[in-house]
Simulated assay, not measured.
Amino acid sequence: MRLVPRHLWLSLATAPIVGFFALPFLYLLAVSLKTKDDVLNGHFWPTAPTLANWPAAFEAANILGFIVNSVIVSLLAGSLTIALTLPSAYAMLRLKIGGRWLSDVTLSSYMAPPIVALIPLFFLLKASGLLDTRTGLVLIYGFANVPVAFWLLTPFLRRMPIEIEQAAAIDGAGPLRILLQIVVPIIAPGIVATFIIVTMLACNEFLFASAFTFSDATRTLPVGISLFQGDRLVNFGQMAAASLAGIAPVYLIALFMQRYLVSGLAHGAVK
């Protein structure tokens, strides 16, 4: 009998948090069902619901193509980030390469505003022939998220018992073999959690994608959604429909990968 009030208070305390995160999605859903005039009346729910915005959104822009571009670019960029960060972090933390200053520089590089690198990266991509290509975005996101991945992977590497690596070294294993056959399996939850986070960051990025892509064949979803905003009129209903269609795959992936994300972050927090 004592558990009932406790569960009741827990539900009451959780309800505002759930409402806070659910409200934007409910509002997007409501706007996607409104006409242009209904959007301006100020009501939360539509007075005359309509599904016309959904087919109109897919006719006005290549939403499916934008989603495919976002998925491909973010997955490849996340893989590149992990491939760059894991051996680098292991070399800096375990092999003491670069000293402490290199890890500090790696982390501090993320503090600079991204717009600072916009012009140099534009001319670099133009000179290399990667402007307006998905490959260019993959390279930019892959390198740009290295500091985040380094910050996330560092606790996992530090909490791993070094005696395991020393025993493997005594048996004749080199650093690369130790990393691939011993370190990676042990910190696999942390690698998966880091991969999910950097992939989401790449999927939601707007600044570089808007500056370095010009055609529907390379535009990602955040840039595609911005196309619904005209010079004088914003198609709020179509924009809301496109936004819901675009975030659905991301949230489905996050929902199915949630246990790996939570277990990975918890694994890094417990020695």
Rank of each mutant, 00 (worst) to 15 (best):
G19S: 02
F156G: 04
V116P: 01
P46G: 14
L233N: 09
M200D: 01
L153E: 06
G237Q: 10
T135V: 14
P222T: 07
G190S: 00
A169M: 14
D38Y: 10
A127Y: 05
R2H: 05
S226T: 15
V73D: 06
L33P: 11
R232V: 11
G19D: 00
A127S: 15
V116G: 05
L33A: 15
W151N: 06
S226Y: 15
I182E: 01
A217P: 03
S243W: 03
R232T: 11
L139C: 10
F150T: 12
V262N: 08
Y141C: 00
D37K: 12
A149R: 09
T50K: 11
V250W: 05
L86S: 04
L227Q: 13
L124G: 00
M160L: 15
M111I: 15
G142N: 02
P87S: 05
I115Y: 10
F122P: 05
A112N: 03
I162E: 10
A245L: 12
I186P: 00
A149H: 13
P120H: 11
V4C: 01
L244T: 11
I82E: 00
Y90R: 02
M200Q: 09
L265W: 04
P24E: 12
I182V: 14
L137Q: 05
V31F: 09
L139H: 07
F212H: 08
V146W: 11
T218S: 12
I247A: 07
D231H: 01
K34N: 10
K34M: 14
S128I: 02
G230E: 00
F212M: 13
R259Y: 03
D37V: 13
I63F: 02
F195C: 01
T218K: 09
L233E: 10
F228V: 10
A117L: 15
N62I: 01
T213G: 03
V270F: 14
F143R: 04
L261D: 03
V148C: 11
V184R: 07
P5E: 08
F20N: 00
I197G: 00
M239W: 03
T47S: 15
Y260G: 00
R2V: 08
W45C: 07
E165L: 07
V234F: 13
R259P: 03
A13W: 13
S108T: 09
V31C: 08
I115P: 04
R100T: 10
L261N: 05
L261P: 04
M239I: 08
F236D: 04
L118T: 13
A30Y: 12
P222L: 12
V105D: 01
A144M: 13
A168M: 11
R159G: 06
L107W: 06
R259C: 04
Y141S: 00
R159K: 14
V250S: 12
A193S: 00
L137S: 03
L64E: 06
V68S: 09
H43S: 14
F44T: 05
D216Q: 14
M257P: 02
T106I: 15
L3H: 05
L121Y: 00
G142D: 00
G230R: 01
V4K: 09
W101Y: 07
P222E: 08
T194C: 10
D231S: 13
L3K: 02
L244K: 13
T220E: 10
S11I: 12
N62F: 03
L125F: 12
A245N: 08
V18A: 15
S128N: 07
H267I: 01
A112G: 02
A241K: 06
V148A: 08
A173E: 01
K36Y: 10
L152N: 08
P161Q: 07
F212C: 05
L102V: 11
